[in-house]
Write a protein that binds this DNA or RNA. Sequence first.
DNA 1: CTTGGGCCGTGCGCATCCTCGTGGTCGAAG
DNA 2: CTTCGACCACGAGGATGCGCACGGCCCAAG
Lengths: 226, 226
Amino acid sequence: MRILVVEDEEGLAESLRRGLSADGHLVDVAHDGHRGLDLALAGGPYDVVLLDLMLPGPGGHAICTRMRAHGDTTPVLMLTAKDGEHDEAEGLDAGADDYLTKPFSFVVLAARIRALARRAGASGRGTLQAGDLVLDPRGRRCRRGDRDIELTARELAVLACLMEQPGRAVAKQDILDEVWDTPQHIDPNIVEVYVSSLRKKIDAPFGRRSILTVHGTGYRMAPDGG
Amino acid sequence: MRILVVEDEEGLAESLRRGLSADGHLVDVAHDGHRGLDLALAGGPYDVVLLDLMLPGPGGHAICTRMRAHGDTTPVLMLTAKDGEHDEAEGLDAGADDYLTKPFSFVVLAARIRALARRAGASGRGTLQAGDLVLDPRGRRCRRGDRDIELTARELAVLACLMEQPGRAVAKQDILDEVWDTPQHIDPNIVEVYVSSLRKKIDAPFGRRSILTVHGTGYRMAPDGG
DNA sequence: CTTGGGCCGTGCGCATCCTCGTGGTCGAAG
DNA sequence: CTTCGACCACGAGGATGCGCACGGCCCAAG
């Protein structure tokens, strides 16, 4: 997922960036309200936006209000150091979807982010993204940049399997488990064949390389799409 | 793993309990919706929850919805006797992660459970850290700061062995035992070779020194990453 | 029936990785 | 300081795993 973090405390911002990156997300960080507003309005699309309430320049409240005024419905998770009801009400009024008081544990944050993404996904779920490569498994569509790409059912399933966890290696056996019904009766090399076919469709014509081989393990989707 | 099974057909419930236990999991079983809901909300934490859709009392749909409303993101696998699209959409809307129609083979079920647990476990657990050095053994990823580092399978295994106990010296023989299958038939110097290779990748390019030699014993990971 | 597309298995050429040997360097003990 | 054992760097060879083209099979549409 693409996540925007607007947070002026550098230590916290950095640890959020690391933690979320380690979870396989693409993270942009802004250290003040001006940059945060710019990215929120034009840097996206993001799947989730984390906003600190107190910031140099426009605060989280203002950023969220502006986003909603522009018709942007990206889920917003508000972070704040205070814990009064006053703040919570304000944040939610501004159009925030959830609210977290500092200090918080990273595990809790990750859970809230998943929950937000899940709820948002209800209306337009299932689109996977890695750089300029977009996959809509339900609608059976795949695009690189502005060009549509035709995929067969198996190709699409394998690609989805990889794009569900961009940046992480997926074992060949795991792909078999997820894509084939009777994985035990099937030659694992079949995965190589489909990866080869996918590369010919989504990489070669664009001079890219988004599906990387992890020797002895399986494959990995380049988070930036190659 | 801890697994919750909510299933009212006693025969099926029992065979699931036996099969999953045989796979090494800890299994709790509920035979109706009320007990299932109680366990799901308070009996955990579970790694995976299996929900039958049709139950005495609250159905799987309701249980899943309640779990999500409580912020619980435990992976849910929905079981159902029907096979209409209607059911699938309902289950996924409720926040289920996957969906299996009866009858199903146990092998398929086990594979789906593995896939769910893997996806969930991907975020957070299992990542090792020492300063700005981060290792994700499952996803086969390694980062120093904001730069990705490519490691071979052996390199990664040796590094994981050291990072599991940052600051503590690990005997060369212990590394052999953990990383190699037949440690007795192998030249112990091989460990030195891989440490050397690791230092070239994770230390030298950054001017750091995170893998320290403990003369006469083995090696030690600098807790701060060097 | 014929045709075409998707799916799966096989085999060979090739890239990568693993392992070990050699010779040089470092560090601790006396 | 000297000595000896432990450690390190480097490169060659074999072993392993991968990429990809090809051909047969099956099903569905015409």
